[in-house]
């Protein structure tokens, strides 16, 4: 039964990915200019022969449905086209950069979710000064553009205090030993992950607080108190799990935004992931690469969503189809 539900969600996800593929195909043809030229990353006067070659290579001289079929077929074989700027296949470029982005986005996701839930819990439970502080902090981070948080973080922690590195994922000087290498990456990860995570932490904290306050007057909470449970036990055993459900739903929705936000963070910190690659693609007008990145990140987000769906079903028995 549960398998059926997950398969259904999977079918849904595949549909989303397919729609993104079609979107990419359509947008390339709707955009002003010749698709072949866009694909070649050229603008204005360029070599006629070269453009003609590109047109033939991608079947752009064929009728539209054939073009779509070719495009779909290529994507299914993980062929996302060729970057004429970087002189390498797009899939290779993206594949190389993907792990760094996943590391960054997942750290930010976990960080924001844990901190957000914790802060929301503290605010709802202790009210008063704690509540006020959490509200101010979350309002502030919710109102700050993440690229600017990153820059301010660099000014404070890298330039003034010199605690954390401001650029890249590894030190320029080679580091010896596996542990030292991991520690080096983690050291570089702190600022970018915090930068990306704090905005979403604010969202989760606000939601968790509101959700807990909504759960508090419910009957089953009174039942638990009537059983003689202490206030602490009622919060931890009964309210927390129930209040977490809307946060989990929101987490699924925000997963995509966190991955999208990594463009900004990677640009600020020169983090060698696909966000940075996307920024370079924008600068160099390498639009075919940009669309490839869009497709790959969308797929990653669909997978993350699938994971949150599965977790939801595990937490809430009512979501399990009978």
């Amino acid at each position: 039964m549960r398998l059926r539900y997950i398969l259904r969600r999977l079918a849904n996800g595949v549909l989303v990915v397919l729609l993104v593929v079609v979107f990419n195909f359509v947008i390339l043809r709707l955009a002003p200019g010749d698709p072949a030229m866009i694909m070649a990353g050229e603008s204005g006067a360029s070599d006629e022969q070269f453009i003609a070659d590109v047109r033939r290579a991608y079947g752009l001289d064929q009728p539209m449905p054939t073009q779509l079929a070719t495009y779909l077929g290529n994507v299914l074989q993980f062929d996302l086209g060729f970057s004429y700027r970087q002189k390498r296949p797009n899939a290779e470029l993206i594949g190389e950069r993907l792990p760094a982005t996943l590391l960054l986005a997942l750290s930010a996701f976990v960080l924001s979710l844990t901190l957000g839930v914790l802060l929301g819990y503290l605010a709802a439970r202790y009210r008063g000064v704690v509540d006020w502080l959490v509200s101010v902090v979350s309002l502030a981070f919710y109102a700050t553009p993440i690229f600017w948080i990153g820059l301010m973080g660099i000014i404070v922690f890298s330039i003034q205090l010199e605690w954390l590195p401001a650029f890249g994922m590894r030190s320029i000087m080679p580091v010896r030993g596996e542990f030292a290498k991991i520690a080096d990456v983690l050291h570089h990860l702190v600022l970018p992950a915090l930068t990306l995570g704090l905005f979403y932490m604010a969202i989760f904290a606000r939601l968790m607080r509101a959700s807990l306050l909504e759960v508090r007057p419910l009957d089953f909470v009174a039942t638990a108190r009537a059983k003689g449970a202490t206030i602490g036990r009622v919060w931890r055993r009964h309210m927390l799990r129930n209040a977490f459900l809307p946060v989990l739903t929101m987490a699924g929705v925000q997963a995509g935004q966190i991955v999208g936000g990594s463009i900004l963070v990677e640009t600020v910190f020169a983090w060698p992931g696909i966000g940075r690659l996307a920024f370079e693609a924008v600068l160099q007008r390498d639009y075919n690469l940009l669309l490839g990145i869009f497709l790959v990140t969308s797929t990653a987000v669909v997978l993350i969503n699938l994971a949150t769906d599965v977790i939801y079903v595990l937490v809430d028995p009512r979501a399990r189809p009978a």
Binding site: F220, H238, P317
Partner: peptide, 13 residues
Amino acid sequence: MIFQEPMTALNPL
């Protein structure tokens, strides 16, 4: 104690 609304008086999870 028992309450009025049995539909909501138990922890749903």
